[in-house]
Design a protein around this nucleic acid. Structure first.
Length: 502
RNA sequence: GGUCCUUUGGCCGAGUGGCUUAGGCAAAGCUCUGCAAAAGCUUCUACAGCGGUUCGAAUCCGCUAGGGACCUCCA
């Protein structure tokens, strides 16, 4: 079966065929580094990380570009107030790049916690001002943009006359064009009056005197508009036609719609073959977002320091939580749901560890061929499900079908010759590939360090001796006090004992 | 107001015409165990409401009700 992905542009699942066989160009809208990332932000980066990993698994050579938006249209908290106190000395004033650096570092740290693969190229908007200016000049020269008072706007009406503006987002162009005349949608936007039409969007904005981030341009000092950076950087690194563009559904309009318009004018063709959009993480049924005042920052997730959280959550729990739902469904957050994921992941990973240690025999004929073929079928479905628009939840479900079998093999509840050696090997291989390589999950019990392991072994030995002597007071003391310390003791049927962090 | 989406068991969530309608968490019982935990087994079986299409619908269509997203920066 070939990989199928849902294309937001055509609103259909399509067979994935890369433009250049064997190679994939993928662009994902990155963070605006004017503040701390929250749980909602984690979703696209984890979802598209899995896309990247899966494409790599499918032997594609992927160039993955994810930008850092560090210029132009962001209004970092507190800056306005700071700007007004301009009598401060230079060193005391808020330096925008200082903020950008701080939140970029924090973002990178979070991505590392999530075990997200670093993009091939991570371009910044401030590093590509020239490219953006060149692109804007090109659009002007082609007659699809105009300058007013040092700002440049894209002429949507003209573009829409010959192109399908609104197709991606399902917008009705006539409504957009007369939107400015309607009271219910008119908002306070800078320069609304100088635009030819309310639907026009800025390519370049003249900087008011108090605006700190500013660059020289053919139209005076200013900063790039809302959407041009992605078009400029995607074109630069992936060409005028590339395979996948990803981002959150909330970017569909106006951001991605405008990207299509800009790039189409510059490059004479639609830029992207497959548009992929992840759905939102909600909280009490509502999108997590700054304007709703319901965000949980990632640092808060990991520390548990938030009124809505009953505990801290490991980054891998968050990652697993996200993978347990399909990327195009909304995912409702709750502390309970996260706790459930935490336990589930622990159980699954424990089974995986057990699986890794199961000895492979040379048994060629399974005594329980029905079970053997059931397992084979579940394993084969891993790829089938992923090929069907990244069905990670169904892959995980299959893993949970297999987990009890793994434990039963270990405990001798299922005899070893029930399944063939090749099936067992396939289990080992498939679990490793999907759990680690494709889903990017790691062992949550990373406390297993060189110092602790021998100490634990010592304690377990003492406990074993005590049990052998029927000195249950001692054995229970060790077990109970370790439990209090958050370490779980597990005895198996053969009298072996393992331990893990609760 | 416009466009679009969504409504699955106590909770979270797969699943788009019939095949056993996932899986996880919670709960209960049992097995194992010195007692626990872990593990295993079993139970709890749902598709918002109404109507239609069909031999057959959670799955397609219509209506009603609830929820949501976008139309403005937004993952």
């Amino acid at each position: 079966m070939a990989l199928h992905i849902y294309n937001s542009y055509t609103r259909k699942k399509e067979i994935f065929e890369s433009i250049t066989p064997g190679y994939v160009g993928m662009y994902v809208c990155g963070p605006t580094v004017s503040g701390e990332s929250h749980l909602g932000h984690a979703r696209p980066y984890i979802s598209f990380d899995v896309v990247y990993r899966y494409l790599t698994y499918k032997k594609y050579k992927v160039r993955y570009v994810r930008n850092i938006t560090d210029a132009g249209h962001f209004e970092e908290e507190g800056r306005e107030a700071e700007d007004k106190v301009s009598k401060k000395a230079q060193i005391e004033k808020l330096e925008p790049m200082e903020l950008v650096q701080k939140y970029t570092n924090l973002f990178h740290w979070a991505m590392k916690q999530f075990n997200c693969v670093e993009p091939s190229i991570e371009p910044t908007a401030t590093g590509h001002i020239v490219e953006q200016i060149v692109m804007i000049e090109d659009i002007i020269s082609k007659g699809y943009a105009y300058e007013v008072n040092g700002s440049v706007y894209f002429d949507v009406k003209k573009y829409a006359a010959s192109h399908d503006y609104g197709k991606l987002s399902g917008r009705v162009i006539d409504e957009l064009l007369d939107a400015g005349n309607r009271e219910d949608v008119s908002r306070e936007l800078d320069g609304q009056q100088e635009k030819r039409d309310a639907a026009d969007f800025a390519l370049w904005k003249a900087a008011p005197p108090e605006h700190i981030m500013r660059w020289k341009s053919p139209w005076g000092e200013g900063f790039p508009g809302w959407h041009i950076e992605c078009s400029a950087m995607a074109t630069k690194y992936l060409g005028s036609n590339f395979d996948i563009h990803g981002g959150g559904m909330d970017l569909l309009f106006p951001h991605h719609e405008s990207e299509i318009a800009q790039s189409t004018i510059c490059n004479h063709s639609a830029p992207v073959k497959y548009w992929m959009h992840n759905n939102m993480i909600t909280i009490n049924g509502r999108k997590m977002g700054k304007s709703y005042n319901n965000v949980i920052k990632l640092t808060e997730m990991f520390s548990g320091n938030h009124p809505l959280l009953t505990q801290a959550f490991h980054p891998m729990t968050v990652r697993f939580f996200i993978l347990q739902s399909h990327y195009r469904s909304t995912l409702d957050f709750s502390s309970e749901a996260l706790s459930a994921s935490e336990k589930a992941l622990k159980r699954l990973w424990d089974a995986y560890e057990v699986l890794k240690n199961l000895p492979v025999s040379n048994n060629t004929t399974p005594t329980d061929s029905e079970l053997d073929s059931k397992i084979t079928n579940w394993l084969n479905e891993f790829e089938i499900f992923m090929d069907d628009d990244l069905g990670s939840p169904r892959v995980i479900a299959n893993m949970f079908e297999i987990a009890p079998i793994i434990n039963s093999l270990k405990d001798g509840l299922i005899p070893f010759d029930a399944i063939s050696a090749s099936t067992l090997q396939k289990m080992k291989d498939s679990f490793q590939v999907y759990l680690e390589d494709v889903f990017g999950l790691t062992n949550i019990n990373d406390q297993n360090n060189e110092l602790l392991n021998p100490i634990m072994q010592l304690l377990l030995d003492i406990r074993k001796e005590a049990k052998a002597n029927k000195d249950f007071a001692t054995s229970d003391k060790i077990r109970n006090q370790l439990t209090q310390l958050g370490i779980l003791i597990k005895d198996d049927k053969e009298g072996n004992t393992t331990w893990g962090v609760a």
